[in-house]
């Protein structure tokens, strides 16, 4: 029970912050990071939609294997993968477990397996692509796909402001700690600590909102001065900004290989389908 107390006093915000920073600003040097972001997004969309169209387990297994290979090549952080697996397994686990109460049998598990496979393929596709993509390039690719300028700006602005905002919140939160008082009793399940922590976390947003409002005003004024709103209505500026996005041989090759792999998988799948046997009730 002392754990929460320990956690609260031991929580080293600096360490968490650096972890966050590493994820956000670490180097992105894998194969996927070098693709034209537009190609990467198209590739992703392909794998986000296709799994929904197949119920043939062979095809899904094929796609899954392909994804796993790419994931291995992309050097994804084990933590992220662990979280993904954990999430998928527990989710399916709950459903199967609950299904047993309603007279379910192993068919439920089999059905769920197909479903979970679909979700895994899609999740891996997004992890492979997006954990390796520079947010700047991502936002430019979106801009190319006619996503409104403000949204694309938002991505790179968030990328810029994240550390500042974290610092600010941390400072305000510490202000509360340095002037507040920690509950003396912990209560059942340490609820007093949890309550204290939650209330502080929420209250800290009051100054945070006001301070951020002040900062935002300067930012938007500066944007005005830097011709941002002017550029928004200027197609030439957009063209110029995006002119660096070029598809290279590498991209074509990548899409080509993906195409071949997909055709092979689907062909094999239709020849040797693994179907779920459906029990008629």
């Amino acid at each position: 029970m002392n754990r929460i107390r320990q956690w609260l006093s031991k929580i080293n915000v600096e360490t968490i912050k650096i972890e966050l920073m590493n994820t956000a600003y670490g180097e992105r040097t894998t194969l996927m990071a070098k693709l034209d972001p537009r190609v990467a997004i198209i590739w992703y969309l392909l794998f986000a939609i296709l799994p929904w169209l197949f119920w043939n387990n062979t095809i899904l297994i094929g796609m899954l294997v392909y994804m796993v290979i790419l994931t291995a090549l992309s050097r994804i952080s084990p933590l992220i993968l662990f979280l993904l697996c954990f999430g998928l397994v527990t989710e399916a686990g709950y459903v199967i477990f609950t299904a047993l109460f309603f007279g379910g049998d192993l068919t439920a598990a089999a059905a769920l397996l197909t479903f979970t496979m679909k979700l895994t393929i899609i999740s891996l596709a997004s992890i492979v692509i997006f954990t390796n993509m520079d947010p700047e390039r991502f936002s430019d690719a979106l801009l190319r796909f006619k996503v409104p300028e403000t949204f694309c700006f938002g991505i790179s602005y968030g990328y810029r402001m994240l550390p500042i905002l974290i610092d600010e919140y941390q400072n305000i939160f510490n202000s509360f700690r340095l002037r507040g008082r920690f509950p003396e009793k912990k209560g059942v399940l340490a609820w007093r600590y949890v309550y204290h922590f939650c209330v502080t976390a929420v209250k800290a947003f009051y100054p945070m909102i006001l301070n951020t409002a002040k900062r935002t005003r300067t930012t938007v004024e500066a944007l005005e001065v830097k011709g941002f709103t002017y550029g928004m209505h200027n197609p030439e500026a957009k063209e110029l900004k995006l002119s660096y996005l070029k598809t290279t041989k590498k991209d074509v090759l990548f899409l080509g290989i993906t195409g071949v792999v997909l055709i092979a998988i689907i062909y094999t799948g239709t020849l040797y389908p693994i179907e779920r046997t459906i029990h008629q009730l």
């Binding site: 929904w52 119920w55 709950y94 459903v95 199967i96 477990f97 609950t98 299904a99 047993l100 109460f101 309603f102 007279g103 379910g104 049998d105 068919t107 439920a108 059905a111 769920l112 197909t114 479903f115 679909k118 979700l119 779920r276 459906i278 029990h279 008629q280 009730l281």
Partner: peptide
Amino acid sequence: KVWVGIEELEAVPGVPESILVL
């Protein structure tokens, strides 16, 4: 999603109920 993602969902005993409850 579940509806689309699981073929002939109605034929899998327990799962629809389970989904609803969860």
